[in-house]
């Protein structure tokens, strides 16, 4: 009986987290239906998806620490899922850029990637995320040596930093938001570098 309620509680917990992950899309859809996407909806949606990708990356980075300091150990169960949502938001962001913002103007897109450092960096971050997403599949993960898998997934810190630089470079003058994300990511990385207590579970 206790086990059954436990299972139910976990299902609810899992459902809530799933709901939180799709919430940004629901909000955007709601804004779309109520004329709430500003006078420049393409720009607004593009920016919103990018910022949400960055937020999900930050949450993914934070989960390891939350679990490590014993605040909510079960959070680790959801890290992969939230990391994959970050990848999903990056994909939606990129798709919006290619399909809507650039309207499949491939020469323009290639020129952007080559000439515009913020787009070069954004694209690099996207490409680096692909192997992380692929190796998140259990089968693939099991096929890998744990050491290699860990090494590969530490790239997420670099990717998050690239994401912030991408954001910083496109802002015209008010850099407060990208700097805030940068500080959060560097702080998370800083805490991560504190050596673990001897005997702690690796």
């Amino acid at each position: 009986m206790a086990r059954a309620t436990g299972t139910m509680a976990r299902r609810i917990e899992s459902g809530l987290i799933w709901l939180l992950c799709v919430m940004p899309l629901l909000i955007l859809a709601g804004q779309g239906l109520t004329d709430g996407l500003t006078a420049n909806p393409v720009e607004y949606v593009l920016r919103a998806l990018g910022v949400w990708a960055l937020r999900f990356l930050c949450v993914t980075l934070a989960i390891g620490l939350i679990a490590r300091f014993g605040l909510w150990r079960r959070a680790m169960v959801y890290r992969r899922r939230i990391g994959l949502w970050a990848f999903a938001y990056v994909c939606l962001h990129l798709t919006t850029y290619i399909l809507v913002d650039q309207a499949l103007d491939w020469p323009g897109i290639v020129k952007d990637i080559v000439k515009r450092p913020y787009i070069t960096i954004g694209m690099a971050a996207f490409i680096l995320l692909i192997p992380l997403a692929v190796t998140s599949v259990n089968k693939v993960r099991r096929a890998m040596r744990p050491r290699h898998w860990l090494w590969l997934h530490r790239l997420v810190y670099l990717i998050a930093v690239l994401g912030v630089v991408h954001y910083y470079l496109l802002v015209k003058a008010d850099h407060r938001d990208p700097i805030l994300y940068g500080v959060v990511i560097l702080a998370l990385l800083g805490v991560r570098l504190i050596p673990r207590r001897r005997g702690a579970i690796k």
């Binding site: 323009g108 952007d112 496109l170």
Partner: peptide, 10 residues
């Protein structure tokens, strides 16, 4: 940092 070749008319 960005192209000025095109614009989005609101």
């Amino acid at each position: 940092r960005w192209s000025q070749a095109k614009e989005r008319r609101i």
